[in-house]
């Protein structure tokens, strides 16, 4: 895939910075856009207001614990919207609660990835997630923008 676009939804600026950095340096030349809460995420995906010219992402990386609209709600909005439903959503969160894992999959998450607690694993998780979803996996064609 050429110039794969990732939308990262996370209220933690450190994780956005570091994840973007890891992805930018990896071979896939992934491009990361980010928003910090659930309401912004939906505006971005529906390209409302200042996001009118934003590229539709090939992959959404979504935290669960978000201000204004939490990750589960964002997920259900995406999966209920015919124009967004086919975009794979990777849940990327600190929570290791079984209830969060199963709820996410039930609501249509494509993958649940826990943010690892140490640096090397964090880097490996981010890289392999991007390589798998944007390298190996076949994704639906991006719609004309």
């Amino acid at each position: 895939m050429k110039n794969p676009e990732i939308l990262m939804v996370d209220d933690n600026p450190a994780d956005i910075d570091f994840t973007s950095e890891v992805l930018a340096q990896s071979e896939g030349h992934f491009h990361v856009n980010s928003v910090n809460d659930g309401v912004e995420a939906i505006s971005y995906l529906r390209r409302e207001g200042k996001y009118a010219r934003a590229p539709l992402p090939d992959l959404v990386v979504l935290d669960l614990n978000l201000p204004r609209k939490d990750g589960c709600e964002v997920l259900s909005n995406i999966k209920a919207d015919p124009s967004l439903a086919k975009i794979p959503v990777v849940i990327f969160t600190s929570s290791e609660a079984n209830s969060d894992v199963s709820r996410s999959y039930k609501m249509g998450a494509n993958c649940y990835l826990r943010k690892p607690g140490n640096l090397a694993e964090f880097v490996a998780a981010v890289q392999s997630m991007a390589e798998f979803w944007l390298g190996f996996a076949s994704l639906p064609k991006r719609e004309r923008q």
Binding site: N12, A14, D15, F18, S95, G117
Partner: peptide
């Protein structure tokens, strides 16, 4: 866990 992960990772 979340803040702790931040401290450890960074």
């Amino acid at each position: 866990q979340e803040p702790l992960r931040m401290v450890a990772t960074y």
